[in-house]
Computed example of a mutant assay.
Amino acid sequence: MPSVPEPQDTGLLRLFFALPCPPEQTAAICQWRAGQALPGRPVPEANLHLTLAFLGAQPASLLPELYRLAQTVHCPAFELRLEHLDSLGHGFICLRPSRTPVALDQLATLLREALFEHGLVLPDSRTFVPHLTLTRQAPQHLHGQAPLFAWPVTHFGLYQSYNDAEGVHYRELASWPLRPPTPAPI
């Protein structure tokens, strides 16, 4: 089981489960984004991810339970393909899949159900919409095709969001593997 990080002064940690964006894809996405002159404030390269479940502020004492809960989530690995540019919510420009992988929906659903069964009420109860945020505070909406950014998703993680003088940072606290995909019959 992962070690429990030192809690902040308040004893609360801002937490979320997510899929990390691999470094080579992060670099390619940021290079493409820079050439697009997208409106809004760019999300820092180190912060690119796809959120599965946002937990909000939770007591640090809950981490061991979250680690146990995540170990019960069993899902196959899959390929994530982001090729659609879209605006979500108020001012978020994102990359989204044209077709959501079944395993991604399953992973998000299993995580959310496990959290609910353990008495955690998520601050965001909206339907899961897979996306990777590129910019925030965009004054206009965009929709269209983007180049294909794809990678094999082999694990998910629990992350802490924290602020310092340099901005918002995300730190992976722990990660869990997805099982290898079942080969298609011949």
Rank of each mutant, 00 (worst) to 15 (best):
L62C: 09
P23K: 07
S3E: 15
P23A: 10
V73K: 04
G35I: 02
L69N: 02
T72D: 12
P23H: 03
V4L: 12
R33F: 01
F17D: 03
E24D: 15
T26C: 14
P76H: 03
P59H: 00
A70I: 08
A18Y: 08
Y67W: 13
F54I: 01
I29K: 06
Q58F: 03
E6A: 09
Q31M: 10
P64V: 06
L55T: 00
P5D: 07
E65I: 11
F17A: 03
G56Q: 00
G56F: 02
L80Q: 04
E45W: 14
V73A: 09
Q25A: 15
L19P: 06
P22I: 04
R33L: 14
Q58Y: 00
T72E: 13
P42Q: 05
M1L: 13
A77G: 15
M1G: 13
A77L: 01
A46H: 15
D9M: 08
D9W: 07
C21R: 05
M1N: 13
R14L: 04
R41M: 08
V73N: 02
Q31D: 11
F54K: 01
F16E: 04
P20V: 05
F17C: 05
A37K: 15
L13K: 08
L62H: 10
P7D: 01
S61F: 03
A60Q: 00
L62G: 01
H49K: 02
L13G: 02
P2R: 12
L66P: 01
R33V: 11
G40W: 10
T72C: 12
A57C: 02
P7Y: 02
T72I: 04
T72M: 11
C21H: 07
L15K: 01
H74T: 12
A53L: 04
P2A: 15
Q25V: 14
C21W: 06
F78L: 07
T10D: 12
L19S: 01
M1Q: 10
A34G: 11
W32A: 08
E79N: 14
V4F: 07
Y67I: 05
P5L: 06
A46W: 11
A57L: 13
Q25P: 04
F54T: 02
H49Y: 03
P20A: 09
C75M: 12
L52H: 04
R14H: 11
D9T: 13
H74E: 14
P64K: 07
I29L: 14
H74Q: 14
G40R: 09
L69I: 04
L38C: 05
L66N: 00
T26S: 13
A60D: 01
L15Y: 04
P5Y: 09
Y67P: 05
P59T: 02
P5V: 09
L12G: 06
Y67Q: 12
Q31R: 14
D9N: 09
L12C: 09
R41C: 05
P76K: 05
T10L: 08
T51C: 07
R14N: 02
Q25N: 07
N47F: 05
P23E: 09
S61A: 15
V4Q: 13
P2S: 15
P44T: 03
Q31F: 08
P76I: 06
R41V: 12
L55G: 00
L63S: 06
A18L: 08
H74V: 14
L69M: 04
A34S: 15
C21N: 11
M1E: 13
F16C: 01
G40K: 05
F78M: 10
Y67F: 13
L66T: 04
